[in-house]
């Protein structure tokens, strides 16, 4: 998630707080989606919705959870760091190029972070139940996916067109 570049220290601290919890959930395989919803403060409408689908690749999590050696099957296709980096670069290129079709964000906007979590998940008090914050009649674009040894991430951006 290093692709969210910001120089604002308050925003940084805010994201850091979220990332701490996300990391725990990701390691334990408790979440299946991460959503960043950009909302217009003026209309309250969601204008852009970035969705990251997280697939836990088989074997790895149960091993981490149980710690038992027999299920701790080493992934036999340990993915080279270089290849992962290339995939991440490719998706960053797409995010950069998304300005060719995304509307310019007008007015004041804010963002919300959502996760789709297992029903039995332990959530800190800051995390409360929410709706999916979807966009009606959205344009949707599927980005490249990337994967590590443990996770595969699919990215989808949905947005609503501005008034022409």
């Amino acid at each position: 998630m290093n692709m969210l570049v910001t120089i604002d220290s308050e925003v940084k601290a805010y994201i850091k707080k979220i990332m701490g919890q996300l990391h725990k959930w990701l390691v334990s395989g408790k979440i299946s989606k991460l959503i960043v919803a950009i909302t217009s403060k003026d209309t309250g409408e969601v204008v852009e919705r970035w969705q990251f689908d997280v697939q836990v690749l088989s074997g790895t999590v149960s091993a981490a959870e149980s710690g038992s050696s027999e299920s701790a099957k080493e992934p036999d296709h340990s993915k080279p760091q270089e290849e992962i980096q290339k995939e991440v670069q490719a998706i960053i290129r797409q995010i950069t190029a998304s300005v060719t079709f995304l509307p310019v964000l007008e007015g004041r906007c804010t963002f919300n972070v959502l996760v789709y979590a297992d029903g039995d998940v332990q959530a800190p008090v800051e995390w409360v139940d929410s709706d999916a914050k979807t966009i009606k009649n959205a344009e949707q674009v599927q980005l490249r996916s990337f994967s590590t040894d443990k996770h595969k991430i699919d990215t989808l951006v949905a947005y609503s067109l501005g008034d022409a």
Partner: peptide, 26 residues
Amino acid sequence: GQVGSSIVQFSDIEDYKENIQPLREG
């Protein structure tokens, strides 16, 4: 959720990104 619209593959657009002039309304 986002019912009714189909999903476009980014690569179909990315291949031509330099031929697209961005518009303010998207």
